[in-house]
Write a protein that binds this DNA or RNA. Structure first.
Lengths: 193, 193
DNA sequence: GAGTTAAGTCAATGACTGTTGACTTATCCT
DNA sequence: AGGATAAGTCAACAGTCATTGACTTAACTC
């Protein structure tokens, strides 16, 4: 009985494969511990590779972070959505982004400490969130979008970084039910001032 | 005309004076840059003193931070306050804390990166914020207080750390007008789920 | 004014860090 | 088989950091 032909476990990965592995490990570490607390050596150890490879493939720790903190919100188009349905269209999308990749948490953690990260978060907001929300705001789109941002970021910070127990205990649906009317109000309610 | 008797500028401060000066400088630095990015050497240089004194008076950088991030919210007693007046009693207090001492910002910046800081923030919340808000919540006090926390923290993060332009541009009064109904709803509105 | 004590300096240590360049080794092609 | 090339290792550098202990100097007391 002949041995089944088996593809040999490659002792060396292809360059794109290790590069991707490093990027994954970086996302996880940055998301969990923040930019400053993570060392290139740790990331390399996670992948089982020499620290020099991290620099080889990404150039520097900063460049690695920049790539690890990249992600797409893919917010839905809100034009023509009824006000009472706005939040229900948005909130699940945010949960998905927070829990899928560690990119967002990486960025959030870094943004409180690093100017570049804060600017990147701001750019993400003005380029992805603000335009999407503008389609739903009855007036003052910039202000209304910013207010929605405070609530969304506050929830992410409290539930995923600080892990406030009551928030961790609540389900997605419960949270959506609490948050939705607030977002609707910010977007379509009477303006202040 | 005799020279007025002048207390000689002491070339050496008293120990409590330098200790206090170090603590002030630490608060400012930690509030602006976060725990990891701040060095003991910087703080010492701000005060015009040798780095060794920082350790001498506080034991370690960690211990210094712990003391620098200490502050009191002094939230008012909310028992008997009418629902529509709740937020107006609370919001100005938060603005004051955020803008007065750098203690809160120090803690917020550190909390995204350090477990101890995050726990300290959580303790602050459960020991000061939650009890005060419980007096105003119609039911589920823990959950309602946590939700208020998300909005408050989100505003602090967006306006003072990320410096989202529309939020920076708005006055205290405008922000209060936007935020107040939301806090009221979280505390006294219909429960979700 | 001598002597004690408190306030502050100084230099060094040991541990990490990101980053580099020279080297080694597996894999593929012919 | 043998060389070319990609993948990966290795040791070291140059810098920074918190922390330490021995030392110096000012201020106060008797």
């Amino acid at each position: 009985m002949p041995e089944p032909r088996r593809l040999p476990e490659p002792r060396r990965r292809s360059a794109p494969a290790t590069r991707a592995a490093i990027l994954d490990a970086a996302r996880a570490r940055f998301g969990a511990d923040g930019f400053d607390r993570v060392t290139v050596r740790e990331i390399a150890a996670d992948v089982g590779v020499d620290p020099a490879m991290v620099i080889r493939y990404f150039g520097s720790k900063d460049a690695l972070f920049t790539e690890a903190a990249e992600f797409d919100l893919e917010l839905p188009d809100l034009t023509g959505v009824a006000p009472e349905d706005l939040a229900d269209a948005l909130v699940p999308r945010f949960f998905a982004v927070w829990e899928d990749s560690a990119g967002f948490l990486s960025l959030l953690r870094a943004a409180t400490t690093s100017k570049v990260a804060a600017d990147k978060m701001l750019e993400l907001f003005t380029r992805q969130v603000s335009p999407a929300l503008a389609a739903a705001a009855v007036d003052r789109p910039a202000e209304r979008a910013a207010l929605v941002g405070t609530q969304i970021l506050g929830l992410a910070l409290s539930r995923y970084v600080l892990r406030v127990p009551p928030l961790v205990a609540m389900s997605h649906d419960e949270l959506r039910a609490w948050i939705a009317p607030v977002l609707t109000r910010y977007l379509t309610g009477p303006a202040a001032g």
